[in-house]
Nucleic acid binder design. Sequence first.
DNA 1: ATGGTGGCGCGGCCA
Length: 254
Amino acid sequence: MRIATWNVNSLAVRLDQVLAFAGSARPDVFALQETKLPDERFPSAEIGAAGYRVLFSGQKSYNGVALLARGELLDASREIVGEPDPQRRWLAASFAGVRIIDVYIPNGESVGSEKYAYKLGWMERLCQGIAAELARHPELVVLGDFNVAPEPRDVHDPRVWEGKIMFSEPEREALRRLLGLGLHDVFRRFEQPEQEFSWWDYRMGAFRRNRGLRIDLILASDALAARCTACRIDKQPRRHQRPSDHAPVIAEFR
DNA sequence: ATGGTGGCGCGGCCA
């Protein structure tokens, strides 16, 4: 099974890039974030014509998550259990016996802001929600845009980013608590190039200078991580005309 | 340098 995740920063703008990537990488399950589309505008027909079934949980202008799959998606959930949230950031479903949870963790704006408090609260609720899902589904993947770089090697310059949004200690601690449920960042189970990132700011030539962060993650439960055979970031789409600011991440499971 | 680039949608918010 091949699983991919990509923050597309507007599916309306990036639909052709999504279909091109799906056609070449051919993921069985493809999680999208920041679709920025209300459900009535979701391009189900175009994606269906490419051979994917779809689930989506969108809103106008902001947020929005979607799951594309080459087969049935069962037992869909659009809210963390017991945690209604008007911001569409969670979409879970089961595919071929594997629980797939697509998340778009809040950005948090800046350390100490109201949005930062919302982010830390959301991550705490996420941890509870994933614990509940894990209790029912031992084979589970949590993937998406986490808006947190786990370790210094996931940041182009840790001295610059220390204490900043996406690399502050409370955010990394919240991510460690999530991993502590029995999840594995599968990217780090394989040899990887140094300075390998998944997001680069649009400004200041950050991509050209590889000033990025690795904030797009695929986390697998113990049972599933044991079956992971590869994980990589595909930087090619970030080189396109009108790119997303994120690159897709792909993992293989036997 | 509180900048800069991009999406949404048409002023200002969000990332």
